[in-house]
Structures are given as structure tokens and as C-alpha cells.
């Protein structure tokens, strides 16, 4: 087997006495489309926080492209190629939408580029995501839906090898979901691995090649979308007894 892009080994995370993640292992292949699902509070965002470095896990390891990144700062992981969006949007609210994208374009980039070049690249990403007409608006004043798009666009601007989208589609209309899915497929075709966290089941089932299901901080299932749909444990987790 070739080396996975992301390899999470027996990761645990506690908040005080509460176990948010209990020895969860998962791996994502190079250029793979990976779904991470689970009921509310099952630990999906916590997992993303540990992978991106926003939280430090107490035990377990995170390997990225074979390198142990468990103790690296978030900005170091971003530079290595892990980019994430935030479920609750966190725009740089004093900046315009375009300037928001210029931050990762300037700071996460492997080599330095000129301002005009960064603005061009930012514009191209905004066009892809459907925010180009708001490029010069203040990001603090965007609607929730546009903020989610901005989250995704800013993560893309880090030019990652692994893009993690944490519920970027919540609240979007059916056609908008399709649009964003298209964009993610396009990005994936260029070789970017994608972890999609989503409550919009239709989207995550259509998008993912492989899915892991979390429930109460533990991994309860792993497989193709078909296998997941037909897994009785998953049904129980979502619908209760």
C-alpha cells in the first residue's frame, strides 16, 4: 500500500472529564474524497481541530505525508498542505473578501509572490466559488451563507494537498449545494484530497469515495457510501433505538 496522505492513529481528546474522541484512527489517501459524518456532538469538528492543530490531542498521532505533525502549530501544518474551513465562520472581518483570501495566499504559499499576482489568484478562487461580485465587500457584513463560501474559498487559497470542509453547505439551497459540490470535484480532479463533513447526506454520499462515521467520539463504521447506508449501526446512531 502506498503511504496515505493523512494518517490519524488512535487519537484521543478530552475536555475535562468528557471524552470527545476516543482512540479514533482514520486515513485519507492522496487525492481521495473522504466523508466524515456523525450525529451532532459526535466529535467531527473536534477531529478537524486536532488534525489542523487548533487543538492539541492528548494521545495518538497525526501523520501528514508521512511526517509526524502531532506537535506542530496550525500555521506549520497549513504550510505543509492542510487547510480547513470553520463550521462557525471566522472571517477577517476588517478586511474585504479579496483581502481575506490574500492572507493564506501570502502566508501559506511555498514561495513569495507579488501583490498583484496574489489578487489575481484570489479573484480566480472567488470566481470558482461564486463570490467574485462580492470581492470588494467587507467580509464582516456578508450573509451567513456567503461567509460559509468565504470559509471554503479561504481554505482553497492556502493551496492545500488536503482540504477539510466543515459543514460548508449548511443552509445552502439545493442548486447551491450542487454548485459547491462541482467546485470540490474540480479541485479534487487537480489532485487535492478532500475531507467533507456534512449533514446534507445527499451531498456527502454523492461526493465521498469512502466514509467514516463517528458517534459519541468513537468510530462506529467505515466504508463506501453504499456500505454506510446499509449499516444498521449507523442507522441506530442517527435514528436512536
Amino acid at each position: 500500500m502506498t503511504q496515505p496522505l493523512l494518517d490519524v492513529q488512535e487519537l484521543s481528546k478530552h475536555f475535562g472529564g468528557f471524552t470527545a474522541l476516543d482512540q479514533v484512527s482514520l486515513h485519507v489517501g492522496k487525492g481521495e474524497r473522504f466523508g466524515l459524518i456523525g450525529p451532532n456532538g459526535s466529535g467531527k469538528t473536534t477531529m478537524i481541530n486536532c488534525i489542523s492543530g487548533a487543538l492539541l490531542n492528548e494521545s495518538g498521532r497525526v501523520l501528514f505525508q508521512g511526517q509526524d505533525v502531532t506537535r506542530l502549530k496550525p500555521h506549520q501544518r497549513t504550510r505543509l498542505g492542510i487547510a480547513r474551513s470553520f463550521q462557525l465562520p471566522r472571517p477577517f472581518s476588517s478586511m474585504t473578501v479579496l483581502e481575506n483570501l490574500c492572507i493564506p495566499l501570502e502566508y501559506a504559499a511555498k514561495e513569495r509572490s507579488r501583490l498583484a499576482r496574489r489578487q489575481e489568484e484570489a479573484m480566480a478562487i472567488l470566481e470558482l466559488i461564486g463570490l467574485a461580485d462580492k470581492a470588494h465587500d467587507h467580509s464582516g457584513g456578508l450573509t451567513q451563507i456567503d461567509m460559509r463560501k468565504l470559509e471554503l474559498a479561504r481554505a482553497m487559497a492556502a493551496k492545500p494537498d488536503l482540504l477539510i470542509s466543515d459543514e460548508a453547505m449548511a443552509g445552502l439551497s439545493g442548486s447551491e449545494v450542487d454548485e459547491i459540490l462541482d467546485r470540490l470535484f474540480t479541485l479534487n480532479e487537480r489532485g487535492v484530497g478532500v475531507i467533507m463533513i456534512e449533514h446534507v447526506m445527499k451531498a456527502v454520499m454523492r461526493f465521498s469515495q469512502r466514509i467514516v462515521v463517528l458517534d459519541a467520539g468513537a468510530k462506529i463504521a467505515e466504508g463506501t457510501p453504499d456500505e454506510i447506508v446499509n449499516n444498521p449501526l449507523v442507522e441506530k446512531a442517527y435514528l436512536g433505538e
Binding site: A54, P74, R90, F92, E99, P104, Y107
Partner: peptide, 25 residues
């Protein structure tokens, strides 16, 4: 400067700045 843009990102949201590649510390 580049530093100033990074500082502005920190002022707006430190966690988001880190995750955008800004060495905040």
C-alpha cells in the same frame, strides 16, 4: 508590509490567522 497584513489577521481572528498560515506568536 507583509507583517502588517499578518498582524491585521491576528487582530481580526487569531485562530483563523494561524490556520491561514500566519505564524501568530
Amino acid at each position: 508590509s507583509r507583517i502588517g497584513r499578518g498582524l491585521a489577521a491576528i487582530r481580526d481572528d487569531e485562530v483563523a490567522a494561524e490556520c491561514a498560515g500566519v505564524p501568530t506568536l
